[in-house]
Write a protein that binds this DNA or RNA. Structure first.
Length: 558
DNA sequence: GCCGTTTTCGGCCCGACTGTTTTCAGTCG
């Protein structure tokens, strides 16, 4: 049992208890434990072996015994029992925006709805509006929500699948017989949402690889096994496919398995030409075709072939180009790590600066800082900054943009800060005109440096809010505002396409982690992938600059 | 169900928004 599986099980228990209207604090306890386990540094099975389970915050006597049962037996009796007490489609329905536990309970009790399909049918038949407290708008938003989920139903975020892929890849590479191995397909191209996990392996002895794979604990089921090819499902029903090739076939095989289909179709309209089998690297293959090497992230038929032919591909940004991070949260608001820990983690990543941008006061649940606490935080930062020579915190905020476009701090407060990220966290439903004007007012504000997660989308969960993007980008370019690529794998906001469009208009980009705990600083990896997919080079990204350059840029822009 | 410099019981992030009401319940962040 992995950390994620155990966290998910505890979360499901919380969902069922909530549906059953159990004690809210008991429910909260399960969620808290699930959250801690999800974010653990160490493998929970290791903590179990060492007898250290009670070191996990939020894990007490009762939950500890449940974790032990899960690790020892692979299942949990009380969870199995709870599952029989509720409609089987319950957890699926919770994913619909605006539909919570209470709504599901009413739908179940009054209409007998037990899953998403039945709910959609009830909405289409206008039966939901007959229920107390629900009307035509609720009905409409349920239909919309289900349609959105259907769209994504077969996809998982890169942030969820990539770590599983890397683990499986490492397991295969660890084998002496394996000469080379790589992720392939959409996961190698770094798409934000992926349907399956593809791995290409080079080995002389195929049978040995098959044998090794059959011992991989991450595999839930093998559904097919033909020559050179194994497929099935990993944990959480993620489909996987492993292609086993002779070392001489590996390079071309990897290239073809990486795609995209559109990229390959443009390259080879009448089939793969002879002669490529002898290539020993992907750059060789492209050279053979008269093209510069095209990195996997660009292989989407978005003009990369023309650029490669003309020698005009950009030099893409790399993780090592970043010198700092301009958006993260500490224990002062809703972050889980203290300032000192964040500083050490950022230094370990080779950064020379990290902007602390906790929430502003109006975001009460996130422990938003009022002006007094912001000032107190500033004093702690001053103190900590004295201990490092090669690193410093920048003082910042993620200030809330109110419904009317005004900001949660006054100008005087904002002027004193090094970095002002302004973001929308409320009123996602405003109409296009109002939402656009709201954002534009913030963009035009002299004290705002960066707009955080511009579109507000959450992959698989929430569509972006309505915006006139042309107007927003035009204003951003004119105001010299920086747009953020928020690296959280559930956001990746702005997306690659928008990032490329912004870059073409001369808008600078900041690649930020929006970390809420020290380990999440490493989520920056996903932002880098996203930026590469948006054709961004080092020069397009503000936080590739030195500390002095970034501070100077932000000051001059005011 | 967890936790403790308010410690073995009694408390446990809270306010805004939405859709439905006509004063509020549910959801969300």
């Amino acid at each position: 049992m992995t950390n994620r599986e155990i966290a998910r099980t505890l979360d499901h228990i919380a969902d069922i208890l909530q549906f059953q209207e159990e004690n809210p604090f008991k429910i909260k306890a399960y969620r808290q434990a699930a959250n801690s386990i999800y974010h653990l540094d160490e493998d929970i099975a290791y903590l179990y072996e060492k007898g250290r389970l009670d070191e996990i915050p939020g894990v007490g006597k009762s939950i500890k015994s449940k974790i032990e049962e899960l690790i020892e037996k692979g299942s949990l009796e009380c969870y199995e029992r709870l599952l029989t007490e509720v409609p089987p489609g319950l957890l699926d329905m919770l994913a619909i925006p605006g539909v919570g536990h209470k709504t599901i309970r009413v739908l179940y009790e009054q209409l007998g709805v037990t899953n998403r399909d039945e709910l959609l049918q009830a909405a289409q038949e206008k039966r939901i509006r007959l229920l107390p407290g629900m009307g035509s708008k609720t009905e409409f938003s349920i239909i919309k929500g289900i349609e959105m989920l259907e769209q994504y139903s077969q996809k998982n975020t890169l942030g969820f699948v990539l770590p599983m892929g890397q683990k499986m890849l490492a397991f295969l590479k660890d084998m002496e017989n394996v000469k080379a191995a790589s992720l392939a397909g959409s996961i190698r191209r770094g798409r934000p949402l992926v349907t399956d996990l593809d791995i290409v392996v080079a080995a002389d002895d195929e049978a040995a690889v098959r044998c090794r794979l059959s011992h991989y604990r991450g595999i839930k089921q093998i559904t097919g096994s033909e020559a050179g090819h194994i497929h099935g499902f990993l944990q959480f029903n993620i489909p996987f496919e492993v292609i086993i090739l002779k070392p001489g076939e590996y390079c071309l095989g990897l290239f073809l398995s990486t795609g995209s289909k559109q990229h390959l179709a443009r390259l080879f309209p009448v089939g793969t030409p002879a002669g490529l089998e002898s290539c020993r690297s992907e750059p060789d293959i492209y050279a053979n075709l008269g093209l510069d090497f095209i990195p996997p992230e660009l292989r989407e038929d978005q003009g990369e072939l023309e650029a490669a032919a003309a020698g005009e591909l950009p030099v893409l940004i790399e993780r090592g180009d970043l010198q700092g991070d301009l958006h993260c949260h500490s224990g002062w608001s809703d972050g889980a790590s203290q300032l000192a820990e964040l500083g050490e983690a950022a230094r370990d990543m080779g950064y020379s600066y990290l902007a602390i941008t906790d929430h502003s006061g109006s975001l009460a649940i996130s422990g938003g800082l009022n002006q007094e606490r912001l000032a107190a935080q500033g004093r702690e930062i001053d103190q900590l900054n004295q201990q490092w020579e090669d690193f410093m915190f920048l003082k910042g905020t993620e200030v809330d943009i109110f419904r009317d476009g005004s900001l949660d701090y006054d100008a005087e407060t904002l002027e004193k800060l090094d970095v002002v990220v302004a973001s929308i966290h409320t009123c996602f439903q405003l109409d296009r005109e109002k939402q656009t004007q709201r954002l534009i007012q913030a963009i035009k504000d002299d004290n705002v440096d960066i707009i955080g997660h511009l579109t507000g989308r959450l992959l698989n969960r929430r569509p972006p809010y309505e915006l006139d993007m042309e107007e927003v980008l035009a204003t951003a370019a004119k105001s010299k505002i920086i747009l953020e690529i928020n690296s959280h794998p559930d956001r990746l906001d702005i997306d690659a396409q928008l990032a490329r469009q912004a870059r073409d208009m001369g808008i600078k980009i900041a690649i930020n982690s929006d970390a809420h705990l020290k380990n999440d600083l490493r989520l920056i990896h996903y932002g880098i992938i996203n930026a590469r997919r948006g054709w961004l080079g080092k020069e397009d990204v503000i936080n590739t600059g030195s500390r002095e350059a970034v501070i100077a840029y932000l000051k001059n822009n005011e």
